[in-house]
Design a protein around this nucleic acid. Structure first.
Length: 955
DNA sequence: GTAAACACGC
DNA sequence: GACGTACGTGTTTACA
């Protein structure tokens, strides 16, 4: 009845004030499938077919667009029948896509117009693909001066992008919406012209689902072929230039490829007119809709339609929030960030520059005289920018190829070194004094690498550092920090690509050493030049984001510490590992046998696919076993544990998995990582990947060596001191993250627990369950511990219930109690969230910022992700700051004392040292003091320290 | 070569 | 009432 009323009464209010005509074209089916797919990934929503949730998902996306982008014109296009005429050319395609359900085609305009009060035309595409209709409309609108945004899967659509046509990608998990223009499309596809997208799609055969292109040509190959030949037709014409199987395939399947291309091409002559007046948007009729929504209790919908300022919002959400982090939605009403996070980027004007169209002077310093002149010039500088070229990316095993330097924009030098190893050293020696001069600052991109390379040539870099990679990591930790990306984003410059010199990645990749000197000169000199230019840009930006201190006092000095740790390496006990490997091998063999017997069939236990089939189809352990999104049975640890009581085969399988993992990832892999030059394992720490400020470790990853299980822990026995005069010393922060929460939040109860020195999880359990410390049992402590961790890692009630294997309700109750007992923490969370909404970022104790672009997103999922980060980043980040400061100070004191002892590993909250026995008593207080006092806190910081003949004993 | 599933640490 | 649940590294299998 109300609805009937509305239809007749809504008077569309046209808004004419909009200056730019903005047309949004939506592929309705694609969006609905997108929403549907998102749901079907979750096991709970496996019921097939389109359902109301999918349609709701679609509506939400639509509303987000309306609110954010405020289009002046809009249309939704649906395929009514598929396969279309064009697709019947290919038999396989038949029946692939479902037609739009008829009721949906009627429901949508109804939803738009009546329920939401917008007039959004729905266009059906009889006999044509929705893409064709959208494409045709887009072109026509572009000619009339519209800015056109196409919301479609971007793959096919990229070909259409021009100066006024964009691809609009709605928000997804972890990402807010995204707009792709010409620049982004070119970059993404690595091509010169957007039209070439269809050539790539044609070759690759990914144009339309299930339409094959040319066999054996994947995305990458397609791109590189297009880069060389420009178009598919050209490739076919020049197929004789190709080799082997590729040539055969191109020749044999040329026709199929062309067909694929034709199908990928968007038909711009669809019979559809651009009815400008008909597509014009109106605002929802507020006066009519608002009372209606209020009466029908469409609160959420109302909020979405009218924005946060709606009076409907004033009906306060009184339900208790059971999730750790979801705050009542937009409680504070519309918030605007005072800082526009997009400010940290500068949009470079015009097309990308490159080496061929910029002025530059790159010199080759390949004689003793030229080098001497260069060194004289460099030595007179306050700081120099440099870069090394090497034969590989592992600093511990590669050889130097050349050095490049820059001190002024557009000017750089390249110093090649001979191929013969013995002849390299004297040339490096010429530069030794320069590098080791502490009065000359060193600028570079990822200096740790260059530092390590040079260490092997007996050069110890000194002086203040400015690392452009780290600078950008501080400025904007969530994005990428590669030099090429930075150059494009900040300088509008596209550097010579390394693949141009040494070929694409893979076994056929050449090395720098084989490239002609002239080419390396340009490449290398350009790197130094760009790095210097980036430094000029980043220096003021650091200041702007309050990151100067973080850069000069923490990140840059830490480079020295990490380089030393990596150079030092860790000694591994081969015999222990070999023995352990054998032991595991026999155990695994035994387990295999029992599993085969119990299952009555031989299969690959390590294959989740086969295992799932055996467990659930043959043995039928669980009738309604969960499946993954690809249709396999889930066989993860928690799933198997739930089955443990049904058959003891499950226990064996879990044991098998554990041992297999131990053997392949650690026991057998570690000895292979030993550097033949040094006989030790040299991990590499990445200082710029984890957005929270933590380090990460790889080649090998020393930060995930087992400790939880008895057997896994054995691996740590193999980490030994360098000789019998040394011991391993390990120092760990106890509960550092929780102490930091207590410190930041100043929660009285939690601070008290730490001051008293009681076990924090027991204390928490006592509080949450209202018991005394003595009454807390194992389960209570375990639950409390899980909540404490949940806080640190940004978990929800759902995550907690999963972790503890308890009902959601129970998890929610525990969390509620937790917040009642630690009100300071609840306040901290609210304050942090508020700060993030206002400012667009959060920060650590040392001012390390994390920008949260999506904190005010209308999309729940996206915003939730940002909110969890808002809580989590200051905590993890402050802990990271703390240990980094400790590392720098300890390293400095070790140097000052000229100790023989070395720091050898960092595992987030633990530092490991190789200590000379005579120095134990001197080293210990230095480690303890510096770790405890890295950052001044009220909450006591506790460090536990241990020693032993291996890493396990040191705990 | 790449994606998916899994498992390890914090 | 919807939506998806920490991150980073590395292994294996499966598939094209």
């Amino acid at each position: 009845m109300y609805v009937g009323c509305l239809i007749s009464d809504i008077k569309q209010i046209k808004t004419n004030q909009r200056s730019m005509k903005k047309l949004f074209l939506l592929d309705g089916m694609a969006l609905i499938y997108r929403a549907h797919f998102a749901l079907s990934k979750t096991p709970r929503f496996t019921s097939g077919g389109l359902n109301t949730s999918a349609v709701m998902g679609f509506t939400n996306t639509l509303l987000e667009v309306l609110r954010k982008e405020k289009p002046s014109h809009m249309a939704v296009v649906f395929d009514t029948e598929a396969p279309t005429e064009r697709h019947t050319e290919f038999a396989d395609y038949k029946g692939h896509r479902e037609a739009m359900p008829e009721d949906l085609s009627k429901a949508l305009p109804y939803i738009f117009k009546v329920v939401l009060g917008f007039n959004i035309p729905v266009i059906t595409s009889d006999g044509f693909e929705a893409d064709d209709i959208i494409g045709t409309l887009a072109k026509k609108a572009e000619q009339k001066g519209y800015q056109v945004y196409c919301m479609t899967p971007d793959k096919d659509f990229a070909q259409l992008v021009s100066d006024n046509i964009f691809i609009y990608k709605p928000a997804r998990m972890g990402n807010d919406m995204e707009i792709l223009g010409v620049k982004e499309v070119l970059a993404k596809w690595e091509i010169e012209r957007v039209e070439q997208v269809i050539d790539i799609l044609g070759l690759w055969g990914d144009a339309v689902d299930n339409i094959p292109g040319i066999p054996g040509i994947g995305e990458k190959t397609a791109k590189s072929l297009i880069k060389t030949y420009g178009s598919m037709e050209n490739i076919i014409a020049h197929s004789h230039e190709l080799k082997g199987k590729q040539r055969e395939n191109v020749e044999a399947f040329a026709e199929q490829g062309l067909l694929s291309k034709r199908l990928a091409t968007i038909n711009l002559n669809a019979p559809v007119e651009l009815d400008e007046a008909g597509l014009e948007m109106c605002d929802p009729n507020r006066e009519l809709l608002e009372p209606l929504f209020a009466e029908l209790e469409f609160r959420t919908l109302g909020r979405r339609v009218f924005g946060d300022g709606s009076s409907i919002t004033e009906i306060k959400n009184v339900s208790i929030q059971h999730d750790l982090f979801s705050s009542p939605q937009s409680q504070e009403g519309t918030t605007t960030m005072t800082v526009d996070v997009t400010d940290i980027y500068e949009e470079p004007a015009g097309p990308l520059q490159n080496i061929s169209n910029t002025e530059h002077q790159y010199h080759l310093a390949d004689t003793f005289e030229k080098r001497a002149e260069l060194i004289k010039l460099l030595s007179a500088q306050k700081s120099i920018c440099f870069d090394t070229e090497t034969t590989g990316t592992d600093a511990n095993q590669c050889d130097l190829v050349g050095l490049s330097f820059s001190i002024k924009k557009g000017q750089a030098w390249y110093v090649p070194v001979p191929k013969n190893c013995d002849e390299i050293q004297p040339i490096v020696d010429e530069f030794k004094e320069l590098f080791e001069n502490p009065a000359i600052g060193k600028i570079g991109q990822n200096i740790k690498f260059d530092m390590l390379v040079l260490k092997y040539y007996n050069v110890t870099i000194q002086g203040e550092l400015f690392d452009t990679m780290l600078a950008h990591y501080i400025i904007d930790p969530d994005t990428r920090h590669g030099m090429d990306v930075l150059a494009e984003n900040y300088l509008g410059y596209s550097p010579v690509s390394i693949t141009e010199l040494i070929g694409a990645k893979g076994k056929n990749q050449g090395t720098m050493r084989d490239v002609e000197i002239e080419k390396i000169k340009d490449y290398a000199a350009e790197d130094a030049d760009i790095t210097l230019q980036l430094k000029e840009i980043f220096e003021p930006k650091l200041e702007q984001v309050g990151g100067t201190v973080l850069a000069t006092d923490i990140e840059n000095p830490l480079v020295y510490v990490l380089a030393d740790i990596e150079f030092e390496g860790v000694r591994i006990d081969h015999d222990t590992l070999k023995e352990f490997s054998k032991e595991l091998e026999t155990e695994i063999g035994k387990l295999e046998k029992t599993v085969y017997e119990k299952a009555g069939v031989r299969f690959n236990i390590a294959s989740p696919k086969q295992l799932g089939e055996v467990l659930f189809e043959k043995l039928k352990l669980d009738e309604k076993a969960k499946k993954t999104k690809t249709g396999q049975y889930q066989t993860g640890e928690d799933v198997l544990l739930a089955l443990a009581n049904k058959s003891d085969i499950v226990r064996d399988i879990l044991d098998f998995r554990q041992m297999q993992k131990l053997k392949s990832t650690y026991v057998d892999a570690l000895p292979l990582m030993v550097n033949p030059k040094t006989g030790r394992v040299h991990t590499s720490y990445n200082q710029a990947v984890a957005a929270t400020g933590r380090l990460s470790s790889n080649n090998p990853n020393l930060q995930n060596i087992p400790i939880r299980t008895e057997r896994g822990r054995e691996v740590r026995k193999a980490f030994i001191p360098r000789n019998e005069d040394h011991v391993i010393m390990s120092a760990d922060y106890s509960q550092i993250e929780l102490r930091i929460i207590a410190e930041i939040s100043k929660d009285a109860n939690m601070m008290e627990a730490f001051v008293q020195g009681v076990d924090i999880h027991t204390a928490t359990a006592a509080k949450v369950y209202g018991k005394t410390l003595d009454e807390v049992d194992g389960t209570m402590r375990r639950n409390a511990k899980a909540v404490n961790f949940g806080i640190i890692y940004g978990q929800s009630a759902f995550g907690l219930s999963q972790n503890l294997n308890i009902p959601r309700k129970e998890a929610a109750d525990i969390i509620e109690q937790y917040f009642a007992q630690y009100p300071g923490i609840k306040n901290y969370m609210n304050d942090t969230m508020h700060f993030a909404r206002q400012n667009g970022y959060v920060q650590t104790l040392m001012g390390r910022r994390r920008y949260l672009r999506d904190i005010n997103s209308a999309n729940q999922t996206v915003r939730g992700y940002a909110e969890r980060n808002a809580i989590n980043a200051p905590i993890q980040g402050s802990a990271a700051d703390m240990i980094k400061i400790a590392m720098i100070n300890i390293h400095r004191e070790f140097k000052a004392h000229k100790f023989d002892s070395r720091m050898t590993m960092q595992v987030h909250d633990e530092l490991v040292f190789d200590v000379h026995k005579s120095e134990i008593e001197m080293v210990k207080p230095i480690i303890l003091d510096n770790m405890r006092n890295a950052i001044k806190t009220v909450v006591p910081i506790v460090v536990e320290i241990g020693m032993g003949n291996n890493w396990l004993e040191a705990h």
